[in-house]
Simulated assay, not measured.
Amino acid sequence: MEIFNNENRGQVGIGTLIVFIAMVLVAAIAAGVLINTAGFLQTQAEDTGVESTEQVSNNLNVLSEIGTVGTDNESVSTVTLSVQRAPGAGDINLEDLTIQYIGTSGAENIVFGDGDATAGYTVDPITAENVDDSVLSANGDRYEITLDLNSMSGGTTYDSVAVLAEGDDAEMTITTASGSQRIVTLNVPDSLADKGDGDAVRL
């Protein structure tokens, strides 16, 4: 005949209570970790979504590509792009662009020259809400981006950039600060015989 006493029952109850409390603590810690992880992933996903949206939408529209004939009357020494912001784009600071130029003499990554054509591209307003900066902040803003190929080809920083001769092609990839890219192809006419120094040609 098996005999139970109150002392044995009390010990079993305390052991069960300890195990239960331990399980609750483990579950609470696990839940806290999951909540923190979910919050981190949500924040990361939101940041990634914003950056991806900006990379797609914050782009430029290139309205025209104009070349200026050099003193030799046989090549284009200056390239000027007329740009505006693309539909749906936010503010774009044109001083933060990176232009990868691929021409007949090689490739260069060109940055803003702060008014010095030999140090990089320059920016000038055509029409803008604020002509004192280089930011496309309204749909009606228009700016000119100019590359003086002749000055760059004679400089020390961009020594592989050269003027574009008759019939030459070049490609420019314009990358904004948010990572959006616009590819521009330049095509010099096969003949510049009817053009003089300083004349403009459409590329």
Rank of each mutant, 00 (worst) to 15 (best):
L25I: 15
N36V: 11
T157S: 14
N93C: 06
T78V: 15
D168E: 04
V83W: 00
G115K: 03
E129M: 10
D132P: 06
D91W: 14
G39S: 07
V62W: 03
S134N: 15
F20G: 12
G167R: 03
G140Y: 10
V56G: 05
D141S: 04
G70N: 01
N36H: 13
Q42K: 13
F40K: 13
R85M: 05
A31N: 11
P189G: 08
A119H: 04
A138S: 13
T98Y: 04
G70M: 01
N93S: 08
R142S: 10
L136W: 00
L97F: 01
E7D: 11
S134G: 13
T53W: 14
L17R: 13
D148G: 02
L192E: 01
T175Q: 03
A30F: 13
A119D: 12
G13M: 13
I14L: 15
E54F: 14
A119I: 04
S178G: 06
S151N: 15
S178Q: 09
A128W: 05
M152Q: 12
L94N: 00
I145D: 02
T37A: 10
G113S: 06
Y121K: 04
S153Q: 11
T71M: 08
L147R: 06
T173G: 04
I21F: 11
L25S: 15
L186Y: 10
P125S: 11
D194L: 15
G103W: 01
T175H: 00
A31D: 07
T175R: 02
D141I: 00
D148I: 02
D169Y: 05
L136N: 02
S137L: 06
E54Q: 13
I145L: 09
V33D: 08
E7T: 11
T68K: 04
L164D: 00
E65M: 10
P87C: 08
R9T: 12
A27V: 14
P87S: 11
N59S: 15
L203V: 05
V56W: 01
S160G: 06
P189Y: 06
A170T: 04
T16K: 15
I66G: 07
N61G: 09
T43H: 12
V19G: 13
